[in-house]
């Protein structure tokens, strides 16, 4: 399986955020698997879909979102956590549950593009 056939998993609860993020990633030339709730995320992971790495926006989710982060980590899927604000608690929680990095909103498109390209090429 090549890296290019792999997709990015984006997890978030805000419809418009998810829509904008999907469009942005697709404009970069990558496939997107979008889930808007944790049940759908479980389904994707159960199906062993071909996920290269995951962007998880924790806004609007309860503590259960961290269990999913641990699961991603256990599946060797690199994980980037998106946080609504700079928070030491979120950083601690994110890193302790397998996050490679914590991104704060609003994301800067150019920086996000560099990050995504970096992760996708790392697997090639």
């Amino acid at each position: 399986m090549t890296a290019s056939s792999k997709k990015l998993l984006i997890v978030g609860s805000n419809f418009r955020n998810q829509e904008l993020l999907s469009e942005f990633i697709e404009r970069l030339g990558y496939g997107v698997t979008r889930v808007d709730d944790l049940a759908a995320m479980d389904q994707v992971l159960d199906d062993h879909q071909n996920i290269r790495f995951a962007l998880v926006d924790i806004t609007g989710f309860d503590q259960n979102v961290w269990e999913r982060c641990v699961r991603l980590h256990s599946l060797d899927i690199p994980l980037l956590v998106i946080s609504p604000k700079q928070s030491l608690a979120v950083r601690k929680m994110g890193f302790s549950h397998g996050a490679r990095t914590i991104l704060e909103k609003p994301l800067v498109m150019r920086e996000l593009a560099d990050t995504i390209h970096g992760f996708m090429r790392a697997d090639e």
Binding site: N17, L20, D57, T59, I82, P106, M109
Partner: peptide
């Protein structure tokens, strides 16, 4: 619910 905060409105 077309509000968003993932990117800045300028972008």
């Amino acid at each position: 619910v077309e509000t968003y905060d993932i990117f800045a409105p300028a972008e």
